[in-house]
Amino acid sequence: MTGEDEHEKTAPVTTPLLSPGERPTLKTMSRITGLAIATVSRALSDAPDISVETKRRVRECADHIGYQPNRAGQRLRTGKTHVVSLLMPTEPDIMSHTAQLISSIASGLHGTPYHLVVTPYAPNEDLMRPLRHMIGTRSADAVILNQTMPKDPRVAYLMERGFPFATHGRTIWADQHAWFDFDNRRFAELGIAALARRGRRHVLIVAPPLDQLYGQDILEGITKACQIHGMTPLWLKGATSDSASKVIETAVSAALEETPEIDAILCSSPMSAITAIDTAEQLGRVIGRDFDAFAKEATPLLTRFRREALTLHEDVAKAGKALACAALQAIEDPKGPRMSGLDIPHYQDPLDAPSPDL
């Protein structure tokens, strides 16, 4: 029987309050749990030779007394910060997609020694600046990138330096790094097909920036599907799905007035869809009668705004957890295979729903 096993059998978990003025330390946790200080430290570090039950006891104790590791000392001892950084742009309209991605990545790291830090950057900021700072200061053990470009300079920079990372979206080097992506080409094909089934022929596209790979995927999917279904795509000028609501409103209003035959709208985000639908309605058009709208969303926000809107679910929670696992694997096994995954969407068209009388 090991010393650790003896402690587990003879020292039940207790959670007394700290003495007046006492700071939560490894020594405090050793006293509370009855485990050796070294065992407590290794349990917090998720050491493989420490049992799951011991790790649970130690973490429960840490939560109870508010223990936070001295990360400077931890970094000196292990060379690790136990931080995974998510680089996110500061968008003008923060919607549930962003919040859910952050939440799901954090959930994927739960129960590990790692925690998530969100590193924001402005849309017009040098993309490399926050990355260079992070690697120069070694303030994280891995990074997760969002909104990737085909030849993303951030990915090239990280690959050149062998720094652990994962991307939400693919690049031309997808076979060499960890990633998770949503099949946006398939989303576009399903959207055009659904609009065509409703007799629509002229579709206004509120697309992502075309310098991003998922924007190019949507472009290819729409182009192919419109050819198949005999529809005419009209690309929104002067705005993208990432633009501020006011910018989208102005651009959509101009498009509808310039091309009154537009009878459908396809959007790559719920925020842009809400703005586009609202703009069309301000011009006197009725959704479901004069036009239909199709978009993807992570939570049922758009359908609560307008029940007539056609929506496809994007499982952002699945993406976040997969990215967390991919980042951890890149840290722990830098020379091993890279995790990757493609979420292929499915659309249940209400027109296909069986009659309640059947």
Score class of each variant (00 low, 15 high):
C61P: 00
E91M: 15
L109H: 02
R71I: 12
I65P: 15
C61L: 13
A62D: 06
G73L: 14
L109M: 06
P113L: 02
A106M: 10
H82F: 14
I94L: 11
R77Y: 02
A72M: 12
P92K: 10
Q100R: 02
A99F: 10
T112H: 05
R77A: 15
C61T: 15
S96D: 07
T98D: 05
T90L: 14
V84S: 00
S104Y: 12
P89L: 09
R75F: 15
L101A: 05
K80T: 01
G66P: 11
E60K: 14
R59S: 05
A99K: 04
P69R: 10
G73S: 12
A106L: 15
N70F: 04
H64G: 11
L101V: 12
H110F: 06
S103I: 03
S85I: 00
K80N: 01
I65N: 09
V84T: 00
Y67M: 09
R77M: 14
G108K: 07
A72I: 15
M88R: 13
M95S: 13
T81N: 03
T81G: 04
A106T: 15
I65M: 08
L86E: 02
G66K: 01
A106W: 12
A99I: 14
Q68D: 04
P92I: 06
P113R: 02
Q68C: 10
D63H: 11
R71T: 13
